[in-house]
Design a protein around this nucleic acid. Structure first.
Length: 499
RNA sequence: GAGAAUGUAGCUCAGUCGGUAGAGCAGCGGCCUUUUAAGCCGUUGGUUGCGGGUUCGAUUCCCGCCAUUCUCACCA
């Protein structure tokens, strides 16, 4: 497993040979791991400014990893890759001298080197550095997957998904399009912070290690603090702490950070994932719909430059306003009846008709309706759109609808048939909140492990008084998936969870 | 959690209807001073995912395990 711990003579050939080259270089007075190198250009800069650099015969100094070597006796073409791209360079025995040329021949694909010289174009037109001097910056002791390409066709792609996720460093070295995805993700993070700043939200940090979890319906990870001899949970949501801050007196707060849910993993779920949550005093869920549209539009403009986004070969137009559908309008239409008027067993029957396997006795009314919605409505929600006004049983932290009995003021945003955000007019009546928590406790006793626990400190905070407040949570990874057209959450998380 | 498929050289893959494995690239040696999937000649490299079983003999057949991928379930 760890080749560094193997005795020299047991090393596989490919590793052994590189160790020997390392020793030969050291014998020739080369430090294989020097301390720095002064670059004048990145690969991309050298290419972009080729015309002026060629005219001035200026010496450029670039540094990067050797990715291809084409040795032809007394001269050699090779490619250097840095964070900006690739650049060809040319090493000629006449130019660098015999001793240096012998050193160069000890270099491998994967080594980092720095080199300097003037730029020229080869006979076939490729911009190339004519190396006048070069130095080893880091000797690579492990072979790299060799990926070749011609006319846009890739050969021997490093494609094994398991190897790519587990050894992401190799994936990033060898698959440049993977780097692009994460550069776009970084850009999106930057845009979110900029946007939240413009909208006057305060960037705050709340605990990840919590004595009591809450704010969502999910099973937590449990851990243990040794000195306190106390069970702690990794947070499943930021919600209850952020609301405490609204109670504390800030008008607008947000946090972008990791949540952890102890549930199954699939294409759209990683046990740790990034959530953007925000709360705004004196606003309701209508504000959050406007904000969501504005944020997504800004992300589209800044990241892709277009409001038309292709995801899984389908085009989505993000131009606001997005369609807004009421939950029961959609559900009733899909079922062909008034679901709100149905007794529980009739809803359960509809669930069965939709092919859902569930234990109706153990599933609350709200959850039944939600399951049914997930089965008969969600897959057909192209979006982007909002679904609003959910049944109260599903939403223990949302405020009752101002006009409709049995509903709460809540919406979820959908795009490509998937939920990507969730928002409500926040419940700020401490008595109502206590009653909701107690309903959840009953569900828990009935066997629902994901029901919300009672949080007495949160109730006390509400009793101190929370202004009318709107809250919104956005599953950031899913948003990244949409904007980068990636179809697995593992492709937008650098180090996804592996078994 | 269930089902299906997959796991062979550093990478991408082939193959063996049971007789201990091949190719391309990479590597190593040779030729080659504008190549670009460089080319030509030669060549090294494998506990066939792990553990059992059947068999004279298993990489191949059987069982178990591990991992990955896909589908379903779970998961607002």
């Amino acid at each position: 497993m760890n080749s560094n711990q193997q005795p020299e003579q047991d090393l596989p050939d490919l590793l052994q040979i590189r160790r020997e080259k390392l020793e030969r270089l050291q014998e020739l007075g080369v430090n294989p791991f020097p301390y720095n190198y002064k670059r004048t250009h990145t690969a991309k800069q050298a290419i972009d400014r080729f015309d002026e650099l060629e005219k001035s015969e200026e010496t450029v100094a670039i540094a990067g990893r050797i990715m291809a070597i084409r040795l032809m006796g007394k001269s050699c073409f090779a490619h250097l890759q840095d964070a900006s791209g690739r650049l060809q360079f040319y090493v000629k025995k006449d130019v660098v001298g015999e001793d240096k040329y012998d050193i160069f021949k000890l270099f491998d694909i994967g080594d980092h080197i720095g080199l300097s010289g003037p730029l020229f174009r080869t006979r076939t037109g490729e911009i190339t550095v004519r190396a006048e001097s070069f130095e080893l910056l880091s000797k690579s002791l492990h072979p790299l997957p060799i990926v070749k390409e011609k006319d846009g066709q890739t050969f021997d792609a490093f494609a094994d998904k398991e190897a790519r996720y587990r050894q992401r460093y190799l994936d990033l070295v060898v698959n440049p399009e993977v780097r692009r995805v994460f550069e776009m993700r970084a850009k999106m993070v930057q845009v979110v912070h900029q946007f939240m700043n413009e909208w006057k939200f305060l960037d705050v940090e709340t605990p990840i290690l919590q004595p009591l979890y809450g704010g969502a319906a999910a099973e937590p990870f449990t851990t243990h603090h040794n000195v306190m001899e106390k069970e702690l949970y990794l947070r499943i949501a930021d919600e209850l702490y952020l609301k405490r801050l609204i109670i504390g007196g800030w008008d607008r707060v947000y946090e972008m950070g990791k949540d952890f849910r102890n549930e199954g993993m699939d294409r759209t779920h990683n046990p740790e994932f990034t959530m953007l949550e925000l709360y705004a005093a004196y606003e309701d869920y209508n504000f959050c719909m406007d904000l969501t549209e504005a944020l997504v539009v800004k992300l589209a403009e800044e990241v892709t430059g277009s409001l038309k986004i292709i995801y899984e070969d389908k085009q989505y137009d993000l131009s606001p306003p997005w369609q807004r559908h009421r939950f029961f309008d959609l559900l009733n239409e899909a079922v062909g009846g008034d679901v709100q008027q149905m007794p529980d067993r009739e809803i359960a029957a509809e669930c069965q008709k939709a092919g859902l396997k569930l234990d109706a006795a153990k599933t609350g009314r709200g959850k039944l309706m939600d399951k049914l919605f997930g089965a008969v409505v969600e897959p057909n929600l192209g979006g982007p759109c909002f679904v609003l006004d959910y049944p109260v049983e599903l939403s223990p932290l949302a405020k009752k609808h101002r006009t409709d009995e049995g509903l709460v003021e809540r919406f979820e945003g959908f795009w490509a048939g998937r939920e990507f955000c969730n928002s409500f007019s926040e419940l700020n009546d401490p008595l109502d909140q206590r009653a909701r928590f107690e309903d959840q406790a009953k569900l828990r006793e009935a066997g629902d492990e994901e029901s919300h626990p009672i949080d007495e400190d949160f109730l006390r905070a509400l009793e101190i008084g929370m202004p009318p407040t709107a809250g919104l949570g956005i599953g950031f990874d899913r948003l990244v998936m949409f904007f980068t057209d990636q179809h697995s959450i593992r492709d937008v998380i650098l180090f996804p969870q592996m078994r």
